[in-house]
Write a protein that binds this DNA or RNA. Structure first.
Length: 888
DNA sequence: ATCGTCACG
DNA sequence: ACGTACGTGACGATC
């Protein structure tokens, strides 16, 4: 039996747009609505197996309804541009799907659909109508089932006449009467004011139609009677407006909508264009050939695999210059599995790549190649030098002479790009033909290296793409004035980081284990006590089970909810603590369990048994602000705020007997940066006089002398200063200080009244961001903020706070990176044995031999303070001790 | 894979 | 009216 699926195109596109985050592909095209639309089409095709298919769209600006009723749809917000730009893509997508689309000027999609379902009814054909709009229920019949999306677009609810009867007690026809009575604000259909769904349903259950309700208005009571009588005309007009027009003059010939399946080539090409990687994989187009156009755009390449027999061919071609790619498998470069190295020489235009498997590179035959890699006079361009340095170092192959990094350059050009891969960047810069690693290797459990020829081809394509991108990226860096940031800071930093990470930091594993035993004992005791107080054993680590116990069994008040249930975070538990003793125990348990799982067990897993060291991996191309991040293990979030956790720092020790751990941290670097870029006189003055900034802020905001600032005032001032750096909002500050929004707003107003330069900076930076589309740091690091013009208040506000925060946080990141490069330089220059080990955003950690202590105590803060000259002084405080804990 | 929670600056 | 403080990573639970 035939089955026609009709999609209400505008409605589904809207639903998809608001249900999904604002995705965009590498060329900046928004694709979330297209993506949602696509997944819906795929699901319908698979599950419903339609024989006929069409999508109806609204067309033309003025429909006959506007002529009858000027205000029709007057209340509806304009379609945001982020959505309108996706309609052409959806239409292109439908072509690739081979699905008919219908639009008729002067009519809405509803009318087209109404006319078609009427025709289907007449012929007795089955129809599934998909929409996000409940109005469509009026079209349901024995033949027509209506599917209404719910919760985004992934799920639909099916309505046939019995289902509508069950849910509303109405026939499909009466859905029109329902809307006539209650109206619809989104379409600006008035209905009867004061009548909502409940009242409207009651009336219809009693009288049946709008007309009958009006005729029987007398039998209604009091106010309702008045309202119905007064708005009788409006009700009738509303019913009329809500009635879908089913007589559109159009072709309703069934065979026009025949659906014979999609064209794999066109669809896979479309998915590639949209960069729907997950769909491409899931669909397994596999051998779906590229379109001629795509094929023509791909350069030819001869991918040579090097072995002992032909290695001389590569050695003969080695020159002073090449793009190379180091392929190593695994997230952690400290124990990545080396696949091999690929060379691509650009000069002679032969388009030949040379893939050298690791075994060949490590063999005697590979010796000249290893020598070339280690020769600083041989200039090479890479993708992710930092990772390559580490992976090669663990194979005892030094790498030198790197003069460009495609990854690092692309990161600087857009630090928020979420697809910084050779495949993604190739697509972004118009070089098709580089497959995604996932596509070639598979992922997760399915990961395996392909056969040699395919591997050689894939790696060769990566190297060639790099070679092509290098000159383009060099120009782009120049154009956006980030070439100095790149060549003088980020590229040298990559080597400094690699050196620190390879050195590693020693961990007292025995001490850590002892701490673990202590924690285990305490956790056991607390657990038993919690079970006793709760009267039942449960998994305390499960927020779901914990929520059930606290809010159902013990009946405590629930302050806030999460998407999936009750919130049980520390903020909630602290409020609940007075009600029941168990809550405090749970907080205590959480704190210790975190220490045990993350900092004892987690850290122990990362300690290398041969050396007793951990080797973190700083990621240089992740954070949108230019900060580093740290992984495997994360050494940037070792506890310090609470004493119990702070003890973890005792296990970080020097790697040589008699040495010390020395740590230096910037004092108030972000507020000093703010003073400099805002040129606020008061703020500058505070730092020029080296005052306690939070006390100073309290004095100015509360208008009192230093002696009158109590600890509570200082605490509040401190929160305001944090808020300022984060891009302040009254709501955020009120949450933080647990005060009302009005009070928070007053604080902020008082702050700005004093620090007028800061206010001006905040205003100007948002204006700048809107005008340029991006903000920059002092060293010209850039962050694009496309959402600064969003129509959605929340999205736009977020972008505005980001515009305020990024130059501050980013400039602080610039400064400490400068200090690191300069510090590495000085250690070398002055022949010091001290070593830089860690960076924690505003802090540098070293291990220092005793005889260098005095030198380092002086040198480190000096270099840090002088890293960049601002209009206020920078200051770094230093301390040292036997462990990181003691260097406080 | 995603969520809730919590560690840091 | 709208409802989030900025930037990260790791863990256990759950689907």
């Amino acid at each position: 039996m035939d089955k026609l699926i009709i999609i209400d195109g505008n409605s589904i596109a809207n639903r998809a747009f608001y249900a999904l985050p604002l995705l965009s592909n590498s060329s900046g095209l928004h694709t979330n609505a297209v993506y949602g639309f696509t997944t819906m089409l795929l699901k319908l095709i698979e599950e419903e197996k339609p024989t006929h298919f069409l999508v109806a769209f609204d067309a033309g600006k003025i429909t006959f309804r506007h002529k009858e009723y000027g205000d029709y749809k007057g209340g509806r917000a304009k379609t945001p541009p982020e959505l309108s730009e996706q309609f052409p893509l959806i239409k292109e997508l439908l072509k690739a799907f081979n699905i008919q689309q219908f639009e008729l000027s002067g009519y809405e999609a509803d009318d087209i659909i109404g006319t078609l379902t009427k025709a289907a009814d007449a012929k007795g054909e089955r129809v599934l109508l998909v929409s996000g709009d409940k109005d469509m229920l009026q079209l349901a019949s024995d033949n027509v089932t209506v599917a209404i999306t719910r919760k985004g677009i992934s799920e639909v609810e099916l309505y046939d006449p019995p289902a509508i009867m069950e849910k509303y007690g109405l026939t499909p026809q009466q859905i029109i009467d329902l809307k006539g009575l209650m109206g619809d604000t989104s379409d600006n259909i008035p209905g009867i004011p004061g009548v909502g769904e409940k009242t409207a349903l009651k009336m219809l259950h009693e009288f049946g139609t709008v007309e009958a309700v009006l005729a029987n208005a007398d039998s209604l009571k009091g106010k309702m009677k008045e309202k119905v009588e007064e708005h009788a005309k409006s009700a009738l007009m509303s019913k009329d407006l809500a009635t879908i027009f089913r007589e559109v003059p159009m072709e309703t010939e069934w065979s026009t909508f025949r659906y014979d399946g999609f064209d794999g080539t066109a669809l896979s090409s479309m998915f590639r264009k949209l960069e729907f990687k997950s769909l491409l994989e899931k669909m397994d187009f596999g051998s779906a050939p590229l379109t001629e156009e795509e094929q023509a755009a791909i350069e030819s390449l001869e991918a040579v695999t090097v072995n002992a027999g032909n290695v001389q061919q590569l050695i003969d071609r080695l020159d002073n210059h090449a793009a190379i790619h180091v392929e190593a498998i695994g997230d952690n470069p400290h124990h990545a599995e080396m696949v091999g190295v690929v060379w691509f020489m650009d000069e002679d235009g032969t388009n030949t790549s040379y893939y050298v498997p690791m075994a060949v590179l490590a063999s005697d035959a590979g010796q000249p190649l290893r020598a070339w890699l280690s020769d600083a006079s041989k200039k090479k361009q890479l993708f992710d030098v930092h990772r390559a340095l580490l992976a090669l170092a663990w194979q005892d192959i030094p790498l030198a002479g790197v003069d460009f990094d495609v990854l690092l350059a692309a990161y600087l050009l857009d630090p928020t790009d979420s697809n910084l891969t050779l495949s993604g960047l190739s697509a972004k810069y118009g070089l098709p033909g580089v497959k995604a690693d996932e596509e070639v290797f598979g992922k997760g459990a399915k990961f395996r290296l392909p056969e040699e020829a395919a591997l050689s081809e894939h790696l060769g394509r990566k190297a060639m793409a790099m070679a092509r991108m290098v000159p383009v990226l060099r120009v782009e860096l120049e154009k956006s004035e980030m070439h100095r940031l790149f060549y003088e800071l980020e590229l040298p930093l990559a080597s400094v980081l690699a050196e620190m990470e390879l050195r590693g930091i020693s961990v007292d594993a025995e001490g850590l284990k002892a701490l673990g035993v202590e924690l285990a004992v305490q956790l056991d005791t607390i657990m038993a006590s919690i079970y006793k107080l709760a009267g039942v054993e449960f998994n305390i680590n499960s927020p779901k089970q914990l929520g059930d116990i606290l809010f159902e069994k013990l009946g405590l008040p629930a302050y806030k909810k999460t998407k999936t249930g009750y919130s049980t975070d520390a903020e909630v538990l602290e409020r609940l603590a007075p009600y029941n003793e168990v809550v405090g125990q749970i907080l205590n348990y959480r704190q210790l369990a975190k220490l045990q799982s993350t900092y004892v067990e987690g850290l122990l897993k990362e300690v290398r048994s041969e050396t007793g060291k951990v080797h973190t991996y700083y990621r240089q191309t992740i954070a949108a602000t230019g900060r580093l991040s740290s992984q495997f293990p994360n050494l940037q979030n070792i506890p310090i705020r609470l004493e119990e956790g702070r003890k973890i720092r005792k296990v970080f020790v020097p790697s040589e007997p008699g040495w010390y751990i020395l740590a230096a941290d910037y004092s108030q670097i972000e507020l000093r940066v703010l003073a400099h870029i805002s040129q606020d006189e008061k703020l500058k003055e505070a730092f020029l006089q080296n005052m306690d900034i939070h006390t100073k802020t309290a004095m100015d905001v509360f208008g009192v002398e230093a002696s009158a600032v109590d600890s509570n005032m200082r605490r509040q001032a401190k929160a305001v200063n944090f808020g300022i750096v984060y891009g302040i909002s009254d709501y955020g500050l009120s949450q933080n200080l647990d005060i009302t929004r009005r009070e928070a707003a007053q604080f902020i107003e008082q702050y700005f009244a004093v620090f007028q330069g800061v206010r001006k900076y905040m205003d100007d930076i948002v204006k700048d961001a809107r005008a340029n589309g991006y903000v920059t740091t002092l060293l010209q690091r850039r962050r694009y903020l496309p959402e600064i013009t969003a129509s959605n208040f929340n999205i736009r506000s977020f972008a505005e706070r980001t515009a305020m925060n990024t130059p501050i946080q980013g400039t602080a990141a610039d400064i400490i990176k400068l200090a690191m490069v300069q510090m590495a330089e000085r250690l070398k220059q002055e022949g010091l044995r001290s070593r830089m080990l860690l960076q924690v955003h505003d802090e540098l950690v070293f291990e220092v031999p005793e005889e260098e202590l005095e030198t380092m105590k002086r040198l480190v803060p000096e270099v840090m303070a002088a890293a960049l000259e601002l209009d206020v002084p920078l200051r770094a405080d230093v301390d040292y001790g036997q462990t990181w804990y003691d260097a406080k």
